[in-house]
Nucleic acid binder design. Structure first.
Lengths: 193, 193
DNA sequence: GCGTTTTCTTGACAAATGTCAATGCTTTTT
DNA sequence: AAAAAGCATTGACATTTGTCAAGAAAACGC
């Protein structure tokens, strides 16, 4: 079962070059885990101890407010990484939840494991820096859309940028991710036929 | 005029430790620049060649859409860094503008200068990584607010988190930053007296 | 200081989005 | 296969936010 790491190193090698030996070292730091649909990877008030690289399946990061309303902050499909970075960095309890939208397989990496790995394989530090940069740029783009576009435009933008999310994620979660209500999304879809 | 670098190294030393010698090396890579109020640091369709550390004054990063409407994506006060990171990284023309809200002083750092500096002073790499992480976490928090709160809540949140922005930035820019119209902000302020 | 420009406020009205409730359709569970 | 739970759609109506236009206040430039 070594193809578990195939996608991970494919992604890593798009940004930096790792030798076979280095790859073997890295492998030892990850924890492979299967999660069933609807199962939590992180629950509010827990500390986020791991970042999760998605090997197969999909997950969401979301908050639940006082009134019980959920707000999806991020989705993660195959090849993406998901975590509450704030809690992961600071060690403080998370105010987010992460759960699986389908049966899912992830590679977990703790903070200490990442630090050791970076010591042994310095090139991987660069990978994480670039990853962080990309994540920031992508989030900045999403923020631009959030403050400047209508519900209709936001949806069509997502459709154009990440069609796979639209296909695989329930509509009420997509509405939540975009910042409006499921009924609004339903009406947008009807209008755009 | 060496106090130009005081704030920069104060910020850096909050995260990593640099010797006097290392600090001297770093200084040589920055370009000190004064900008008058309303002057551009970056204009749409130019490549963003520098990140700018704000020594004094304030700036904004914003887009202008087809209809001429401005949308402010970021403010930067003293001690903050501002740039269109996407253009900076990729070398592609920017779709953003940066201009000064007051007479402002900045320390510019080009991509190549940053790369050389990191070679000579490796600790600074760690600083930039942590900076990136913090920026991401802050933006994620802002995104959560953007998708889950009303105009009123967004404003009060900003007021609680960054009161200095509210004090120093014109209201119509704050409204733009929060994703609604100046008239709406005006009404929120009246109601909350 | 004085005129000019920019910014802020207000009101009346329009448009977008939210709320609530009912219904039918899927998917999951047993 | 039946029952239950979750999800999407729709309509009527409420609320929030945007638009436009006018005037007042503040900041700026000379």
């Amino acid at each position: 079962m070594n193809e578990i790491f195939d996608l991970l190193f494919k992604k890593v090698n798009e940004k930096v070059s790792l030798s076979e030996a280095e790859q073997e070292i890295c492998k030892s730091f990850f924890i492979y885990k299967k999660i069933r649909k609807r199962q939590y990877l992180l629950q509010e008030s827990e500390v986020c101890k791991y970042t999760a690289f998605v090997v197969k399946g999909s997950l969401r990061l979301y908050t639940v407010n006082e009134k019980g309303a959920e707000h999806v902050l991020q989705f993660a499909l195959e090849g993406w990484i998901i975590a509450d970075l704030y809690s992961f960095i600071t060690g403080e309890p998370s105010s987010y939840n992460i759960d699986a939208l389908e049966d899912t397989e992830v590679l977990l990496l703790s903070k200490s494991a990442q630090e050791e790995m970076v010591q042994l394989v310095p090139a991987i530090q660069q990978y994480y820096y670039l990853l962080m940069q990309n994540a920031y740029v992508a989030l900045q783009r999403r923020m631009t859309i959030a403050i400047s576009q209508t519900a209709d435009e936001k949806y069509n933008n997502l459709l154009a940028t990440y069609p796979e999310i639209i296909q695989r994620v329930p509509q009420h979660m997509i509405a939540s991710y975009l910042g409006f209500k499921p009924e609004t999304l339903s009406r947008i879809r009807r209008k755009n036929l």
